[in-house]
Structure formats: C-alpha cells, structure tokens
Design a protein around this nucleic acid. Sequence first.
DNA 1: TCAGTTGGGAACATATCGCC
DNA 2: GGCGATATGTTCCCAACTGA
Length: 300
Amino acid sequence: MTRRASKNWAEREIRGLLAVWQEREVQEQLAGAVRNREVFLGISHSLQRLGVQRDWKQCRAKVKNLKYEYRSMVSRRRVGRRGKAMRFYQEMDSVLGRRPPPQPQASGLLGEHLNVVIKEEEEAEDSASAQPPDFVTACSLQLPADSTEGDDQEVDKPLYTPAERPGLDSITAETEGPVEEQRLNTVSEDPATTSPKEPEPQQEQQHDSSSPRKRLRPKKGSLLQRHLGTIISSFLDYQRKAEERFYKWEEERRREEREHEMRIIQLLLDHSRCSLSHTPDSPEYLQHHSHVFTPPPSNN
DNA sequence: TCAGTTGGGAACATATCGCC
DNA sequence: GGCGATATGTTCCCAACTGA
C-alpha cells in the first residue's frame, strides 16, 4: 500500500475542520445532499483560508474517520466499556449527539405533511402560470458559506439571506442554464467568515456535473419541479419544528428517566433499611426513612 | 513495545446516466 | 419504463505510522 501520502492531521487542522464542519449551514448541506463532494470542497476551501492545506478528499476522509471513531466510542460506552476518550468527542457530540433519529421518508407525519403541501400546490396549479419566471429559480441555493466563487461576479445581492431561507442550502430546486449556474455561484456571505478574495484553484470543480445536489433535482417541466421551492421550504420549516419538538421531548424524557432512577434508588434504599429493621413495615419506619436519600448531582 | 492515530481499501448501498 | 454501467457515499476494517 502507498500510505502516508500526506502528513498527519495536526490538532489545529482538525479543530479547523471541525469548526467548519460544525457550522449549521454545512450540516444542513451534508444532511440534504446525497453527493456531498461540493460540500467538502467548500470545507476544504474554508480550511485553506484558515491556512490548512487539505483537499476535499482528505477532509471527507477525516470527517469519515472522526464519525466512525465517535460512533465506536459511543457504542463502547453503551456496553459499559470505558476506554480512552477520543480527543474531539465534545465537538463531535455537539453535532452527532444532538442529531434527531432519522425519520422515514414520506411516511407518517412527514409524509402527511408533504402530501398536504403537494395537494395545496396542485390546487394552486391553475394560478401557477402567473408565477414569475424566477419563481422556482428564486429557490436556487448558495454554495457553502465559505465559498467565494461569486465574489467578483456582477451580483448585487443574494436572492435571499440565509435567515430568510434557512436550510435550503443543501437542496437545489430546478436550475436551468447559465443564469442558474450563476445564481448557484452567488454566495450570501456571512460577514463573520468572509475573507479577502483569494485564488480559487477548485472553482472549476464546483460546476462539476456530479453535483451532490443533483439527485434532488426534479425533471424539467414537472409539476413538482415548478413548485419544488415552496415544497422544500415548507418541508424544511416542518423539519425544523419537528426537530425542536424532538429536543423538547428528549429533554423531558431524560428528566423523567432521572426521576425514575431516583425513585428506584430510593426504593432500594428503603428496602435495604427495611431488611435491617425488625419492623420494616411499620408506618413509623416508613415515615422516618422515606426521604433520607439525597440524589447525587446529575451529569445532565 | 504497544496503544492510539491515521489514511486507504473493500464491500455494500444508492443515485444517475445512457441505451434499448 | 426497464436495465446495466457508472459514479459516489458510507461503514467497517486493516496495516502503517507515531509517540510515550
């Protein structure tokens, strides 16, 4: 095997990679894209601006291994094995650990929601012809936040700000022709992360035909395509709400779990005391011993 | 010497493309 | 539309490397 083609990742490089990878925008892009090469191209580009010279394949491989390492450690801990904690557990856990479980596609609530949206869109079909030509293309998406491909292009402003269209980054509505390509290259830069323009060695690859977003593009001329932007927007809104609900539910569940454990521990303690007492079942005993236990401080 | 780290490969899954 | 070829992503594993 020809190994060690590149030097090992320094901690600074890994932290930079994680910092970029942790960004909500990047996570949304990775979650929404089946082909994530462009996402990693963006990550690589961001790293280059941070002084880390790693190409997208190296970034992908590193993220891949970090995820595997994280999962391995989680599974080890789940079965009670405690090994050395991985170095960047906190960073990984902040992203992977809070991720809601995958939801079945177009089924259950989500499917119902999509169906409703589609139905509404179909009902509005008659008036759809009144949509401006850019109705769909207005939902065209930006490249990763770090990319500066469109910096010196003649674009006055993005079609919308990330706040207006959060989460749409990863899913591309139907795009047609050069105009759309230009829009894809239009970047709504985060001022905090924007740096002076630098040469873009990988710029050409951003337009590769094997775009990660490609699979989400519908066929031209379909009804769904014409309203895909609205559908996606509604879907993502719903997804965000579902995510918030999940987090609340999860929080509540953990709290109940802790209370349950406390009750069990309390019962066990009571029982052990009862077994030592001559009159364990007497009301006096229970009254005297029922609230002795002080629960340990919870880690959560 | 050895445990931990790393990059790369194998196997598999899945989407896209081109042809019929 | 069906089907095979191709491209790409993910998971898991392994051998080489690193550092104590």
